[in-house]
Amino acid sequence: METPDDVVDLRDITKSYRVGFRHARREAVSGLSLSVGPGQIFGLLGPNGAGKTTTLKVMLGLAFPDAGEGTVLGRPLGDREAHMRLGFLPESPYFYGFLTAEKALQLYGRLFGLDAEVLSERSARLLDLVGIPRESHLTLDKYSKGMLQRIGIAQALINDPELVIMDEPSSGLDPLGQKEIRDVLLGLREDGKTILLSSHQLSEVESICDSVSIIDSGRVVIEGSLSELLTEPGTTRITLRGGGEAAGAALAPLATNVRRDEGEIIMDVAADDAYRALEKASELGLGLVSVEPARRSLEDLFLEAVRGDGP
C-alpha cells in the first residue's frame, strides 16, 4: 500500500513494555503498519489501551520500537528535520505552568527558530483560532483541561507544519469545543496539510476523516478509506414514509434488514431487488424519502472490528 510520497509510513512496528519486576513484557503494539498519504485526515482509532498513543510516540521518536521501522516526512523516526515540519498535540497536554498562553507559544515557536515578528503575529492568530483570549495574564497552571487542550492545538501549529499529529484532539472539550476543533482540522486540510489523529470518539472521526486504521490490542484490524469502509457494496438503502407494522412485515421478505424509526421505514435491500422493493412500496402507498447506497455506521464497523464478530 505504501507509495513514495506517503507522509507517514510505519512498517511492522512492535513495541513492548516491561510489566512487573520480572522480565515479563507486554506488547503494546504488535507488528503494526500504517501509511498516511498527503493531504488527508487520517484517523487512528481503537479502544482505550489499543496502542494509539504508543504508536504516535514511536512515530515521533519519543519511544523506541523493539522491531520495525518507519519514516515521517521521508525522514527516519524522531529526526529533527522532520520535526521542523510537523506539529504534535500530546494526549492531555500540559505546559510549563509559569508561562502565559502567549509566552508558551512564543517559547515553542522559538524552538523552531522563528523570529519575534512572525511569532507574535502567528501566536495571536493561533490563539484566536483556538478561542483563547490573547492578552490573558493567566498563567497556564490556572487553565482548565479544555483550555490546555486548545493551547495544545495552538502550539502544534506554531511552525505552520505540513503534518499535524494529534493524540485525542477533542478530549476534554465540550461539544461546542469539539465542533470548533473539527472545523480547525477541516481548515487545515483545506490548506493542504496532512492530519493524523487518534481517537476513540467515533462521531468526530466519522464526520471528518478520509481514511482510518482501526487498531485493537496493538494490531490493525481494519484499514482503508472511510467511504469505502462504510458503504456496504451491493446493498441499497430505501427510506420510506408512512405505513405501519403491516407494511414493514410486507416488505420484509424483499429486504436484508428492515427497521422502523420515527414514522419512517428504513430497509436495506440487495441492489438487484431495489426496483421490486420500490414497486412494492408504491403498491402499499408509502412515500419515498430516499434511495442511497447502504452505509454502516462507523460505530458498527468499530464494534465489529474490535469484537471480531464481523460479517
Binding site: L60, R80, H83, S92, P93, Y94, Y96, L111, N159
Partner: peptide, 14 residues
C-alpha cells in the same frame, strides 16, 4: 511525569 517533555522533544530539539 507532567508530560511537558513531549512538547519539547516533539519539536526540533535533540
Amino acid at each position: 511525569d507532567m508530560r511537558t517533555i513531549y512538547n519539547i522533544l516533539s519539536k526540533p530539539v535533540s
